[in-house]
């Protein structure tokens, strides 16, 4: 079974719930989702940090959660109770990677219950400006925007 045979609407729904649940629980933010990802292009021009994880097995995919550096500091500050100015770069990278770990863990458990066989990699993070993720398969891709006040995040899932 591959990503095509998984109900995309269902996967979308699982991811959506996972992101909202993880961010809300860990930060207390009131998160709203928006299926329109058209703002992502202009978002790429600012300094961005992306938490990434790969999933293998019944689905081979990359899951990425991107936000700008200032938003990521705010997110990690609310997760830890540490002031944004006191956070190290390592804290911010680790926090974004851990958020992806939590949301992929949640979705993996949901899919394993459905009978899929999945393994996940350790999470990691990438930061920089004008980061462009290009996947060969442009058809099987999910992108969603999440907003919590001034904090804007983009979730991207692509079949590999």
């Amino acid at each position: 079974m591959d990503m095509v045979s998984v109900d995309m609407k269902k996967l979308n729904g699982l991811l959506n719930r996972a992101v909202i649940d993880v961010i809300t629980t860990m930060t207390g933010f009131d998160v709203e989702d928006d299926p329109d990802c058209s703002q992502f292009a202009e978002f790429e021009s600012v300094e961005t940090i992306i938490g990434v994880m790969a999933v293998f097995g019944s689905i081979d995919a990359v899951v990425a959660l991107a936000t700008d550096i200032n938003s990521s500091k705010l997110i990690v500050a609310y997760m830890t109770g540490i002031m944004p100015t006191d956070l190290t770069d390592e804290d911010v990278h680790d926090g974004m990677a851990e958020l992806v770990n939590m949301l992929v863990g949640r979705v993996k458990a949901d899919l394993v219950r459905e009978g899929l066989d999945l393994s996940i990699t350790s999470p990691f993070s990438i930061s920089g400006t004008n980061i462009e993720m290009v996947f060969k398969d442009r058809e099987n891709r999910i992108c969603r925007r999440f907003i919590a006040g001034d904090v804007e995040m983009f979730l991207s899932v692509a079949k590999i």
Partner: peptide
Amino acid sequence: DDSAIVRKIIRSA
């Protein structure tokens, strides 16, 4: 925990 952030959250609690 391999995540420094999770260790910090646990430390604060």
